[in-house]
Design a protein around this nucleic acid. Structure first.
Lengths: 143, 143
DNA sequence: TTTTTTATGTTTATCGGTGAATATAAACAC
DNA sequence: GTGTTTATATTCACCGATAAACATAAAAAA
């Protein structure tokens, strides 16, 4: 499973090299989507397929469900690795995540997260301050 | 299946190039029709057949269902691809979706959606703000 | 028939995606 | 510490997809 935090650069064409350690699990295909807090989620195809099926079976008559499906399905993109382990991040996802050049790739167990480096740093310093509060909240969950 | 988001332009005659990645699934025929939220739905002939069946089996006693059935069924039109992968969007559908020049083609798993770019952007910024609701929705889906 | 309009088909140019090659840096083994 | 291997960064070149302009064919009007 994915753990660790890596810094990589996007090239001029919007390609990002995925850390070599993560490639094995993704060789059979991967999908990037809009994530939370303005980062991107990267799933293996297998994990993604289950989600997509559920999402696509949501009823058409509810506006919220449609919006959700559009965000998740239209927002997603299948990606292939080239021989150097790079993936192409489509423009609309780079926009969404405000990806510029320096990016952070973080392993979150069953998915990767791709962050703009600045946003990542801000987010991290922000949450470290709150980490005590988070710890308490976890305590309530019995963890 | 269809996922992802693409920007394309209609030409002066109302023709729209469908992204090359999507053409494979549509080679055997496709159907466009009026969709929800002022976009167009584009199905492969096969998917359309299923959808049409579902719609036509809606009960006649509810005004909403009747309206929905008319929207989708009466608006439907078979379309052919030319050798460049373009389809001709009939005028009444262009009017319906307020298609102008710049369009967005979104993959929604079993269908494509065709949006006027401006409308799409508005819709998206509207729903992205609610993205926290996504997290909850994901929870409900058991993801 | 001749002219005008509309639809359909073709061509060319531009841009973006893709692949490969080289260079730089890091990790590892000896 | 040195040499070797592997990973990352960067650059360039090519191919294919798209955009736009143009040409042809069909249809409608005069």
């Amino acid at each position: 499973m994915f753990i660790g935090e890596y810094k990589h650069n996007l090239d001029a064409k919007g390609r990002l090299a995925i850390p070599a350690k993560f490639r094995g699990l993704l060789k059979k295909g991967a999908v990037v989507t809009r994530g939370l807090d303005n980062c991107l989620f990267l799933y293996s195809k297998k994990e993604w397929a289950e989600m997509a099926k559920k999402i696509s079976s949501l009823p058409l008559n509810k506006a919220n469900d449609r919006a959700f499906a559009r965000l998740m399905l239209a927002g997603a993109m299948e990606i292939d690795f080239d021989k150097q382990g790079r993936v192409m991040i489509p423009e609309y996802l780079r926009d969404f995540a405000k990806l510029n050049k320096k990016a952070v790739i973080a392993g979150l167990y069953d998915r990767l997260e791709i962050w703009d480096e600045q946003k990542w740093n801000k987010y991290k310093t922000g949450t470290e301050k709150e980490s005590n509060a988070i710890a308490e909240a976890l305590g309530e969950l019995g963890i």
